[in-house]
Design a protein around this nucleic acid. Structure first.
Lengths: 336, 336
DNA sequence: ACGTGCTACTAGAACGTACTAGTTGATGAG
DNA sequence: CTCATCAACTAGTACGTTCTAGTAGCACGT
């Protein structure tokens, strides 16, 4: 309690060696005999020595740190960070985390990270404008994860089109031809998915296909479902922009007496934890989280060593759960 | 791209002053004239200078950093971290985040933080044993947030008893007398809540009260609900250990044709995001998140300045939503 | 004896900042 | 005029580590 934490100097003195040798031992690099190594480690352990990361990183030419900006409100980001830890460890890199939240803007989070001198920044689903991304990229290598952008940064993303295609193929295989898409309104990625949906619908000759304005939240899904329910003809399947929106659709349909998947099938996007809830058990398009993470770290490492920015596109896959089933012949007509 | 990031030396040279003065300006402390200050800031901005946090923290006597260990899988931790940022900023403290996840144990996360030389560690709902907490506390001041412990660390927790009492009072006020508690099995806090439930039930003379083994997950709630449904007499209200478990109960009841809150009322605990989902809209006991956060930071700061460990207990409050209502007279008997 | 190569180790200079202990020049009191 | 006071500024060291450039000692071949 009294004295502050021990330093290399304390260990060196106690073990009767130089600080340089302590450094060698602590880093586990060659240059010390086995006996000395053991002795130094024993002393360090006894004194409760922990290397000072700040001094370490300051001295090293490369910081070997990747800054990660993630949203506390996004469960999906949690999954990504988890895998980023794994991917970074594989390359001997450390992660510095900075969270985004209402009240803590992305730029503030990124600025905090810059002070740690990371070799690169990995931004999870950044909402920054291309311009802001470019500004940031002028200061430090930047990787945008799970967000497509025109900015001059590396991007590792899922193939939205492939995801939508998989969903449609699944539904068509079940006999659906009247499929609605509840889009993400102005959310990033919404345009891609909407276009992909329209293209897939055209290709599959889905005469009854249509697109509704949705959004990111459950309420958006509820609103869209109401619109469908109030319309003349209920589709036999709905592909929502994301899981949360899909849940909104799902619950509003059920509340109105429409059976899912009996009358209408529902597909989400993201395979977030909400989709896995036992009572929801949503069929959804899952992004390749480990792939995104390792791709992100790889891209960051590449940028840090001077390579040009790259764009990696990964294939998502469909997770079939219990909200999709064979197309029903009849329409529930006047459901409310 | 070629040259590395600018340092104070570069700014000093460009502005024609000493590095010491640059330091003064960057910290915003008195000791520079307004004109010089403006000039230095202008130069710094132009060169894209960002102070090096590592060097800063290394030099300062106090690091002014709090280490925070949180679980990526726990939405509630996200809420806490969000408020911790606010509380820390109020005191001019920085946060160093280290995440816990399956595959990244709490001790590893804490060890990583230790290398950053934080003034104290704030552990969110730590699952470490009292012994492990004591070990850690021997190296650095430790605050356990939202977890009661016998270890010699500071703790900032919610009054589980008061939370349960509020839930029971609410239900009793609605005319319920046959209330079941689905507990958290071996989860931390489960004992407290179970005991509080039994005490409150006795005090309120709830003859029909009973306790079922539950758990942390939705499946645990589903299992408990099945047990209730298969039993001779359905209670008129259920108080679950947490929100996720409550949702399991809720959905299983509804799936079996039991109306909530028509036939049975359901109360959760935590006010996690799942409780706020539009279609769930769960009545639940909300912890005082901003209070926990500022209490945690205050406790950490106190420990860091040598004060003895403390124990702060905060009152939770009930958030009444739509899963609770007046006790129904009849029993739905053969629901399936 | 001499160099050569190797292992085990060490002295001391960085890294980029904060901070202590000044120095300078202007102002004002006596 | 002298001295104290103050604001504005600077020189130089310290923080705890890594890294460069060594040195000491030993074994070995010639």
């Amino acid at each position: 309690m009294g004295a502050s934490r021990p330093t290399m100097v304390d260990i060196a003195r106690a073990a009767g060696v130089s600080t340089a040798l302590v450094s060698i031992v602590m880093r586990g690099v060659p240059g010390a005999s086995d006996t000395t190594r053991a002795r130094v480690l024993a002393v360090a352990d006894e004194l409760g020595y922990v290397p000072d990361q700040r001094a370490r990183k300051l001295r090293q030419r490369r910081s070997r740190v990747l800054g990660v900006c993630f949203g506390l409100r996004h469960a999906f980001h949690g999954d990504l960070v988890e895998q980023l830890y794994v991917a970074a460890a594989d390359r001997g890199l450390d992660l510095a985390l900075s969270a985004t939240a209402p009240g803590r803007h992305e730029t503030a989070a990124a600025q905090a990270l810059l002070r740690e001198r990371p070799e690169a920044l990995i931004l999870l689903g950044p909402t920054l404008s291309d311009e802001a991304l470019d500004d940031l990229a002028a200061r430090v290598p930047v990787v945008a994860l799970a967000r497509s952008t025109a900015a001059n940064v590396s991007a590792v993303i899922s193939d939205e089109r492939a995801g939508i295609d998989a969903a449609i193929a699944h539904l068509v295989g079940l006999g659906h031809s009247d499929i609605a898409h509840v889009d993400g309104a102005h959310a990033p990625g919404s345009d891609e998915r909407r276009t992909a949906f329209r293209d897939a619908a055209r290709r599959a000759n889905l005469t009854g296909s249509r697109v509704l304005t949705g959004g990111l939240t459950e309420v958006d899904g509820i609103r869209a479902a109401r619109e469908l329910l109030d319309g003349p003809l209920l589709p036999t399947a709905v592909v929502a922009f994301n899981d949360v929106c899909a849940v909104g659709v799902l619950e509003e349909l059920r509340r109105s007496g429409v059976a899912v998947p009996g009358d209408v099938s529902v597909v989400g996007f993201d395979d977030s934890s909400i989709a896995r809830l036992a009572h929801i058990d949503l069929t959804t398009v899952a992004q390749d989280v480990p792939g995104l993470a390792s791709g992100g770290v790889a891209a960051a490492a590449a940028l840090a060593s001077g390579e040009p920015s790259r764009r990696v596109v990964l294939d998502p896959h469909l997770v079939v759960r219990s909200t999709t089933g064979p197309a029903s012949g009849h329409q529930p007509g006047d459901a409310t």
